[in-house]
Design a protein around this nucleic acid. Structure first.
Lengths: 333, 333
DNA sequence: CTGAAAGCGCTTACAG
DNA sequence: CTGAAAGCGCTTACAG
């Protein structure tokens, strides 16, 4: 691989001049620039980004650390972040915590060592210790989706209070009177928000959500199945509606309801947080609260770019939207 | 951020010694090692990976470039590659060509400049020119899923001849006699393989696939819808089965069949290449040929690691498997 | 408009 | 067992 020194020799100039041509610095004579450029092309020169980074103390690279790429929501987020970063000429180093705080910490350290210019993270676990270390190094940091209390970090979150309220209103208008809620891991801030929002809206609208019908689920398909099994085994009246707090659990819940021979929405209605492209091919199509994934990714990149540039950057909250489909229709039409 | 020099000063040793302690070099006295380690901890030292890479000419980083992360198959592949790479202590720089050769080329160049230790790619387009450039630099390169003719690059591919034949056998045994094939982009090698494999198996087993029933689809949901519309508008007898060559198109095809009021498998049977977790929640559940995505990612990382280590590394072909569900059952039972 | 020189933070033969 | 010194490939004040 040709180095800058070789280019300089071949073009009969100093490396300083080659560097200036490469970076489009002003005050270079047109003919020098042309000659150097020609030599670079001829020798198929590629600048060594590692050397450049060491010198300029900037890698033009973002570290992106998600809680679990197996979850389509996070995969979509990575996609959108990749898109926006590439638009800005920023590269991406990818990390996946798989919901394990120690894996998250290992990635974080590798991000620090690799001198990333900024970090976008959906934090896993609730210990904000690592964030303080990152902040102490003055490294731009942004939370997406999930947040952590106890540290002052700008974030991109979802405002779903309105959508949750609309969901309850819709369910009521269809004649439903009670719901079960299958939650995600309550350690996560947005999950707690969703639960609180759902319960608050239900209370305000006089819609029944019995305490035993709030079942702690998780993040996987199996968590969804298990929660439905648990729910169906409960004594007393069955709720009119089941609402799952993410679409991976919806998958398990729907399979379980089918296995139990229950027809949706005739025997029980259904809705889920997180939309999925499959929701309008399922029978029945599935009512969902959709998160603006692309916008979240774009906003996160914008936020971290601003911080890198030393600009002011406040938190961003993006609205979720209710998408009404057939799974939440009234039982008897 | 503390540097090695500061650690050396604080510990009263040279930077060479600090470096040796850091890298666990032999021949260091236990007390020196202990003292240096203590200082590193105290000052919260993180080695600068950029400086290290410049010196050692190794970044311990892989460039991963997929054709389209929006496709769940590629997203799964990235996940699996990330997993295996992390097990081996390798970092990941992610690129997404979005099926555009010029975007692919831009990422490739950035990988070269960032001095990645190896590249795993699902090539987009059919021009192998860029691969020659990579190979000329002696940079380890591995193809996954897709391959390119005209260059000698080890690859991880799918052997689906047997699965395709089993599919035809199954369809026949269910009483079906003819099928339509909705293809992906025929510019891609594995797509051409799938088409050839399907057609060959059909011929061998005397199963009808009329030329006009081989419809060029694409990669998106819309491509799937469009192909089904085209198929249904065709004069003459309808095929007994529709087979789509990826699950994103299956989504569009299924929606379109529903919209047309056709019941599966009563009016027309259905199967798709690429499994999806949603396929066994759909009504009916969908027969599919599944690719071993995790194994593919793992094999790709293994392959590139071997080449980096200077070992021999031949191509890997992994078998696809047929998963029979209800969408391909006989029409009248 | 261009060059000589210093330096980014490490690693590694070479001595001792 | 440890240190002095060179050097990886760039960029950038400082001179001229």
């Amino acid at each position: 691989m040709a180095t800058m020194k070789e280019i300089a020799q071949a073009a009969g100039v100093s490396t300083a001049t080659v560097s200036r041509v490469l970076n489009g610095a002003p005050l270079i004579s047109a003919e020098t620039a042309a000659r150097v450029t020609a030599v670079m092309q001829e020798l198929n020169y590629r600048p060594n980004h590692v050397a450049r980074s060491l010198r300029t103390v900037s890698t033009r690279t973002l570290g992106v650390l998600v809680s679990n790429v197996a979850n389509p929501f996070f995969a979509g987020l990575v996609h959108s972040i990749e898109d926006s970063a590439s638009d800005r000429g920023l590269g991406l180093i990818l990390g996946n915590a798989s919901e394990q705080p120690d894996r998250q910490l290992a990635y974080l350290h590798s991000f620090l060592e690799k001198q990333v210019d900024g970090i976008i993270i959906t934090p896993t676990g609730s210990d904000p210790g690592w964030a303080e270390e990152v902040l102490a190094r003055k490294l731009p940091l942004v939370f997406v989706d999930r947040t952590l209390t106890g540290v002052d970090v700008p974030s991109v979150t979802i405002d779903d209070a309105a959508a949750l309220r609309q969901l309850i209103e819709h369910l009521k208008s269809e004649g439903h009177r009670s719901a079960a809620l299958i939650t995600g891991p309550t350690a996560n801030m947005p999950i707690r928000h969703r639960i609180a929002g759902f319960v608050a809206a239900a209370e305000a609208l006089d819609f029944a959500v019995r305490p035993e019908h709030i079942i702690e689920g998780g993040v996987s398909r199996e968590d969804g199945s298990r929660a439905v099994q648990k729910l169906l085994a409960l004594p007393g009246e069955r709720p009119d509606v089941i609402f799952t707090l993410n679409n991976t659990m919806a998958l398990g819940a729907l399979a379980e309801l089918q296995a139990a021979g229950l027809s949706i929405p005739r025997d029980i209605a259904f809705a889920s947080y997180d939309d999925s492209p499959w929701f309008d091919v399922l029978t029945p199509t599935v009512t969902a609260i959709a998160q603006p994934v692309s916008e979240m990714g774009r906003a996160a990149v914008e936020l971290v770019s601003k911080i890198i540039a030393g600009e002011e950057a406040g938190p961003v909250a993006l609205p979720a939207t209710l998408i009404i489909r057939r799974s939440s229709e009234r039982a008897s039409s």
